[in-house]
Amino acid sequence: MECFIDLENLSGQPSFAPPGHSGTLNHHLAHQGNGARHLAVWHGCIEPGGEAHEHLHPETDQAFYVLAGECLFRLGRDDHRLGPGNFVFVPQGVDHRILSTGTESLRLLVIMAPMPQETAPTE
C-alpha cells in the first residue's frame, strides 16, 4: 500500500483523462488501490488552454487547491481568477468549470468525497 507519494514524480501512479475535459491528465493519490474507502484525492494537470467543461457532481462534494499555474474558475454563475495557494470548495450539485489560462500547466490537488466510483483506478 503506497501512502507516501512524491508529487514531482507521479510516473508510477495510476492516471486517467476524465471525460468532459480537454488537455487534462489526473493521477490518483488516495484511491481504493491504496486503501481509501470514502475519499478520492488526485493530482490534476490541465495544459494551457485546456479545461474541465461545465459540469456538476450530484452526489459528491469536491475541493481544489491550486499548486501551480492560473485558471478561470466558474462556480455557479460567478467567475474567479485563481493561482497558487488558492482553494475552492464545490458543494455537490453546483455547476463548475475550470479553464487553464496561464502559460504553464495548471496543477491542482482535487479532493472528492464520497469517492466517485466511475473514476476508481482499475489496478
Score class of each variant (00 low, 15 high):
residue 20 G to F: 04
residue 2 E to N: 11
residue 21 H to A: 14
residue 22 S to P: 13
residue 107 R to C: 08
residue 54 E to T: 10
residue 11 S to Y: 12
residue 69 G to A: 04
residue 73 F to K: 02
residue 84 P to C: 01
residue 51 E to H: 12
residue 31 H to R: 11
residue 97 R to W: 10
residue 73 F to C: 04
residue 48 P to T: 01
residue 43 H to V: 03
residue 22 S to E: 11
residue 35 G to C: 07
residue 102 G to I: 02
residue 77 R to Y: 03
residue 20 G to P: 13
residue 86 N to D: 09
residue 82 L to W: 01
residue 80 H to M: 01
residue 24 T to M: 08
residue 96 H to M: 04
residue 26 N to Q: 08
residue 99 L to A: 05
residue 66 V to C: 09
residue 36 A to N: 11
residue 4 F to I: 12
residue 52 A to E: 03
residue 21 H to K: 09
residue 96 H to E: 03
residue 94 V to A: 06
residue 92 Q to P: 07
residue 39 L to V: 09
residue 92 Q to F: 03
residue 57 H to F: 07
residue 113 A to K: 06
residue 5 I to V: 13
residue 44 G to D: 00
residue 38 H to W: 07
residue 95 D to Y: 08
residue 49 G to D: 01
residue 122 T to E: 14
residue 30 A to T: 11
residue 49 G to K: 02
residue 70 E to M: 06
residue 99 L to C: 07
residue 8 E to L: 07
residue 65 Y to I: 14
residue 55 H to A: 03
residue 54 E to D: 12
residue 77 R to P: 07
residue 71 C to R: 03
residue 36 A to I: 09
residue 87 F to T: 02
residue 48 P to D: 00
residue 42 W to F: 13
residue 91 P to F: 00
residue 14 P to A: 05
residue 119 T to N: 14
residue 7 L to F: 15
residue 68 A to C: 13
residue 118 E to N: 13
residue 36 A to C: 09
residue 31 H to A: 12
residue 17 A to F: 12
residue 80 H to N: 02
